[in-house]
Design a protein around this nucleic acid. Structure first.
Lengths: 122, 122
DNA sequence: GTCTTGTAATTAACATGTTAATCAAAAATA
DNA sequence: TATTTTTGATTAACATGTTAATTACAAGAC
């Protein structure tokens, strides 16, 4: 995935940081558990990533109003700007990949992977 | 992949260490470059893994006779014993997965992944 | 209300992923 | 042959993956 890596290097974020920001941009406020699920990251990794993104003023962390265990994460305007200025290029790269691979094959592949991940051995 | 992780924990190795040992058991003597390719690891990761496996007396490292830059890696009898005593269980797990997923779908999936990895987005 | 149990998130410790820099040895070139 | 270039492997630095332990708070049971 060379082109994607290039785009991310230009944006100054890693794959995982990009994924976290993109999910937050799409979903608005989320708690760490939901965000980790949606961004395919384990909680310990997400904790470190959010710590870093918070220092860069790309996301904010606030305590939940009623449940003192939970936190609420939200992307900042700076974070949204980073996404907005790179998402077109990102989408172009994905579209080019899908076109070259074949939209039909892409759909087959995603279906098969979904089926595989639903398997519970035993 | 819970069952595989369980097996590996029982054997006392990680996924990557297991892969390196298995490839060496199947292919005999290999240099780091070939081994990294065959075990899907980048060279820096492989270097660390081989360092560890060498300390555990699971592999040996020797200089190449004619090319002073290269090394020759080989699995030890202890390493072979580790593989031999766990490979039957490993094969059972894979067979169960293939059966539950469907051998036809498994083949389709592997073919699609191979095609995808062959794509070179210019 | 106290005690127990469960849950959300973090921290700790170690292994691997990733890119760049380094080093030694081989190969190519003048 | 001396110089340059290339190659094989390692090291360095930082980010993430992974499992276990820990902490703080919430919810239930008594």
């Amino acid at each position: 995935m060379g082109p994607i890596r290039l785009m991310l290097t230009g944006a100054g974020v890693t794959e995982q940081q990009w994924r976290v920001l993109r999910v937050l941009a799409e979903n608005g406020v989320m708690d760490p558990t939901a965000l980790s699920e949606a961004s395919c990251l384990l909680l310990p990794s997400l904790t470190r990533i959010v710590n870093y993104l918070e220092k860069q003023n790309l996301v904010t962390r606030a305590r939940h109003q009623t449940d003192g265990r939970r936190f609420l994460l939200e992307i900042t305007p700076l974070g949204n700007a980073l996404i907005a200025s790179n998402i077109p290029h990102s989408n172009e790269i994905y579209a080019a990949l899908e076109k070259q691979f074949g939209p039909d094959k892409m759909e087959q592949l995603l279906d098969l992977l979904q089926d595989l991940s639903n398997i519970d051995l035993k």
